[in-house]
Amino acid sequence: MNFPKLPLGSWVEALEDWLTTNFAPLFDAIKAVIGFMVGTIESALTALPALVLILIITALAYWIGKWRIALFALIGLLLIDNLGFWELSMQSLALVLTASILSIVIGVPIGILCSRNTLMQNIITPVLDFMQTMPAFVYLLPAVSFFSLGVVPGVIASVIFAIPPTIRLTNLGIRQVPEELVEAADAFGSTPAQKLFKLQLPIAMPTIMAGVNQTIMLSLSMVVISSMIGAQGVGAHVYRAVTQAKTGIGFEAGIAIVIMAILLDRLTQNMFKKKTN
């Protein structure tokens, strides 16, 4: 027996058209804010000469981590500059930092809300499952429809793709706080805000930072995909190298992305360790 096909695609397109028609001012405002954030971060990263910024990042890596991380930062960033990808890398880094900041600012409060309300957790969890399992390319279609081509839809797609770990691990970290400590805080008359900021968040911070680390890595993994819709940076060179079968250029651009990924990963991993030591 043949059942008629559900017009799911038509429903999605109709919803997209309705949102585009009725919420255009909201999308324009979001585009302006995100564009300003990316532009500001990029301007800050490119304001100093490359060598000066490399030395600053190296010193920061030494302060946060160990001398090995600082040495890797120095050699890796000098290699990026030598290959001619410095400005493009800063454009990609601006996109990654913007997407990561938005993911953290949005994701941590949602994770806190899920940890305090089981019903909210049950509603949010399937949405996060959908966001993590849907192919990242699919996010580009509505992002382009709502925000046109450029860096902004790339940031939006990156946020959708990267935000689930922050929400999940914030929720998990707070729920793993020992019940005895929570009961002791209640017994001493702590308000919910005091209990959250002075007890639960400090204890859950290692788990939350693990989620933040994963969010940053996922944002960086979207650099190449975002270049398909007009986002500039190293990802655009990788995409052009693939379409033109230029293995050498693609490898050089890929090395720049790998160096940024390793450096961001090591810095975020050691950032909380520095605070607790």
Rank of each mutant, 00 (worst) to 15 (best):
P4H: 07
P4N: 04
K5P: 02
V12T: 02
V12F: 07
E13W: 08
L15W: 13
L19I: 12
T20K: 15
N22L: 09
F27V: 01
F27T: 08
K31T: 07
M37T: 00
V38L: 00
E42C: 02
L45I: 03
L45W: 12
P49V: 00
L51C: 01
V52I: 10
I54R: 00
I54M: 03
I57F: 14
K66C: 09
K66W: 14
A70E: 04
L71R: 00
L71H: 00
F72T: 00
I75P: 14
L79D: 10
L83M: 14
W86E: 06
L88S: 13
M90H: 05
Q91C: 04
S92Y: 09
L93H: 06
V96D: 09
V96N: 05
L97N: 03
A99F: 08
S100D: 03
S103I: 06
I104M: 12
V108G: 01
I110F: 10
G111V: 09
S115K: 01
M120P: 00
Q121M: 04
I123W: 15
I124H: 13
I124M: 14
I124D: 10
T125H: 11
P126V: 08
V127I: 14
L128N: 02
F130D: 05
F130P: 09
A136K: 08
V138D: 09
Y139E: 07
Y139P: 07
A143V: 03
S145L: 15
F147T: 10
L149R: 02
V155W: 11
S158V: 13
F161K: 06
T166V: 15
R168L: 12
N171E: 15
L172F: 00
Q176E: 13
Q176T: 00
V177F: 01
V177G: 00
E179F: 04
F188E: 08
A193M: 12
L196E: 08
F197K: 05
P206N: 03
M209G: 06
A210R: 07
G211S: 10
N213Q: 10
Q214E: 14
M217D: 06
S221D: 01
M222L: 11
V224Y: 14
V224Q: 10
V224R: 08
S226W: 10
S226P: 15
S227W: 13
S227G: 15
I229D: 14
I229K: 11
A231Y: 12
G233M: 08
A236M: 12
Y239H: 07
Y239W: 09
Q244A: 09
A245M: 08
K246R: 15
G250A: 13
A253H: 14
A261G: 15
Q269F: 05
Q269C: 09
T276L: 12
